[in-house]
Design a protein around this nucleic acid. Structure first.
Length: 596
RNA sequence: GGUCCUGUAGCUCAACUGGAUAGAGCAACUGCCUUCUAAGCAGUAGGUUUCAGGUUCGAGUCCUGACAGGAUCACCA
């Protein structure tokens, strides 16, 4: 980072002295040099030809000569058309590395005094989590960790959708077909138990629709009049009226579900600082409707319903309160937005929610900004694409979902068979082996879901199992284990690499300077990932880093090196890479093994 | 139909925010384990960046218009 600034200010000086032009530093930038040319950084001169009044080659050559003479980091240069490729000094590489290596904390930017809430997961309590939730949870957790690394104070929150008609459907079906079944009596996880009755409801509902149609009702009427649906609607009314039996059943089923979720979250390795429950928040927001009316942000129609007009912002008119005075979805979301702010005085609020709700959040944020909320500018919808199967969209009612618990279990089993096939479990006891399989299986899964740009929808083919080679979690984990092995050996034979002095080294292999260059990019990538809310940037970076390390590993020997300074340097370089991989993977919620 | 998102190698994804001959992985093929872990490394092959215009020194990237896929447009959540 500092070398770049160094070179840029030298370029600034070159313009001043050669062309009598004062350029602001932030208008200048360096690009990485393409592999086929010599050099590390490239300065593109095309934009400055008006100033220099020279041909591109001449401009680049003059600046190149100036830098070679006046900038200690630049040892040589070459010019290709308007591209000035700069070759850096060997000493500069060593300096850069020494600076990185002596820095205690890696990948942590200083506190910025800002608080951000990241809401993710936000499950419905009527069915177990599936593959789509995995993407949501891994994304949310990773973004939270990335924001922490950027210096934010982060609150991870989970808004549990624990009430509503869908819950009542599971409850009604349970009353009809449950026979008092419990997680203990059935051996089913609580969330799977609830999900079973949600599916049973749908089955019965469809059956009843058909019967009504056979009796002559239209499909539309039949859908409205099916007795089991009426029961569910009735149950929702009873719940809202606080009917003791209904509330009792609701509490019991939700408790089962929470126990199930807890276990799933533990396996996933995600956690939360704050839980919100819709049963507590669904009545919020009505005071904001009043406030909006008073401020003229909302308006009332003749029938008493309340609306917001967002046509000037390119959206539509949107209902915020029904004519009968009851809430809609967005009413409670307005209330919850305020609640979050009142609870934590957050500067920013990130919602990790699928892109099917893009419009909803667009409306919500515009409303809160119109109302002048202090946190308004900091609202952000991290909208991610759906995970599709080759057969199309997942539908929980139709049983075409990839269950989260099943998938994680399969991944761990696959990791086990892979590992055994490669014969890599000697020296592991049963407990350690089990831990390794979990690290690898979950690492593969998490990396698979996180390496893709969040906003793009992605395809998951259950038949083609997730890879363990190439651009995968296990490849990066493997690189870490390789280094760990080197560090063990270095400790064993007493190499002093902790505070070695590298200043005597004057010759570096190309694979070594390349590796330093990548290591030096870590903070930049953390910033970018934070600014774009994109764990994919970290994933891509870690893959590049691991690849670069493996190239170095194959290219230069470590322990057979005669020069002790160089040997220590290579171990230090390895150590720094391991630390970077470990920290980077932790930002993705992925653990790395010491051996595999 | 209106609005929004996406379209890059057979497949899964990149491309430093407008820079050079568009890069990786998987799959295919060829080498490399008597040396620090071969879940690795090196190489070969694979492209009209969906299409047509435009903006400029320069476009996968920005603008316009098609085409394809998806989402959304309830007094549902």
């Amino acid at each position: 980072m500092t070398i770049q600034q160094n070179i840029l200010s030298a370029i600034q000086q070159a313009f001043r002295e050669l062309f009598q032009e004062e350029l602001a530093l932030d208008t200048l930038s360096l690009a990485p040099t393409r592999k086929e040319f010599a050099g590390t950084y490239t300065f593109v001169v095309f934009p400055y030809l008006k100033i220099t009044k020279l041909a591109p080659e001449a401009t680049a050559t003059q600046i190149g000569n100036f830098l070679k003479k006046n900038c200690k980091d630049v040892s040589d240069f070459n010019v290709v058309k308007g591209f000035l490729n700069l070759v850096l000094n060997e000493n500069t590489w060593i300096d850069v590395f020494t600076q990185l290596y002596s820095k205690g904390q890696i990948g942590q930017l200083p506190a910025n005094g800002q608080k951000v809430m990241v809401e993710y997961s936000s499950p419905n309590t009527n069915k177990p989590l599936h593959l789509g939730h995995l993407r949501n949870n891994f994304l949310g957790y990773a973004v939270a960790e990335i924001l922490k690394a950027n210096g934010y104070e982060v609150i991870k929150s989970n808004l549990v959708n624990d009430r509503g008609i869908h819950i009542c459907k599971s409850m009604v079906a349970y009353l009809h077909f449950g026979n008092g079944e419990t997680p203990t009596s059935s051996g089913l996880k609580g969330d799977h138990l609830a999900g079973k009755y949600y599916v049973l409801f749908d089955k019965e509902y469809k059956k009843q629709i058909k019967e009504l149609q056979n009796q002559g009702q239209s499909e539309e009427d039949a859908k409205k009049n099916a007795p089991i649906l009426l029961e569910a609607q009735d149950m929702l009314r009873k719940w809202e009226a606080n009917d003791p039996d209904t509330v009792g059943l609701w509490k019991q089923m939700n408790e089962w579900v929470y126990a199930g979720f807890d276990s799933t979250y533990r396996t996933m390795g995600v956690d939360f600082d704050k839980f919100y429950y819709e049963s507590d928040t669904y009545l919020l927001g009505k005071d904001i409707v009043e406030e909006g009316l008073a401020k003229g942000v909302f308006y009332k129609k003749e029938n008493g319903s309340v609306w917001v007009d967002l046509t000037e912002e390119g959206l539509d008119e949107k209902l915020v309160l029904r004519a009968d005075g009851t809430s809609v979805y967005i009413t409670q979301d307005m209330g919850t937005a305020d609640l979050k702010y009142n609870d934590f005085k957050i500067d920013k609020s990130v919602y990790v929610v699928g892109n099917e709700q893009d419009y909803h959040f667009d409306v919500l944020f515009k409303i809160m900004r119109k109302l002048g909320r202090p946190y308004g500018p900091g609202l952000y919808h991290l909208s991610y694409g759906m995970v599709d199967l080759p057969t199309g969209k997942m539908k929980s009612r139709e049983g075409t979902v990839v269950d989260a618990d099943d998938l994680m279990k399969e991944m761990i089993a696959t990791a086990e068979s892979h590992t055994k096939e490669l014969g890599k479990i000697e020296g592991f006891d049963t407990e350690q082996a089990k831990e390794l399989y979990e690290i690898l299986g979950l690492g593969a899964l998490k990396y698979f879901l996180l390496k893709v740009d969040p906003k793009k929808r992605m395809l998951f083919n259950p038949k083609e199992s997730i890879e363990f080679q190439g651009n995968t979690g296990p490849f990066i984990q493997y690189s870490h284990a390789r280094i760990a092995s080197i560090l063990r050996k270095a400790d064993q034979i007493g190499v002093d690499y902790q505070q070695a002095d590298f200043s005597k080294i004057d010759q570096l292999a190309e694979s070594e300077s390349s590796l330093i260059l990548v290591l030096n990019d870590f903070e930049k990538k953390i910033k970018q990932a934070g600014a774009e809310f994109s764990p994919a940037i970290i994933a891509q970076y870690l893959f590049d880093l691991a690849k670069e390390y493996n190239r170095f590993y194959a290219d230069v020997p470590i322990f057979s090196e005669n020069d002790t300074d160089l040997l220590a340097f290579r171990v230090a370089l390895s150590s720094q890479t391991a630390k970077t991989i470990k920290k980077g993977m932790s930002l993705l919620g992925i653990a790395v093994p010491e051996r595999m």
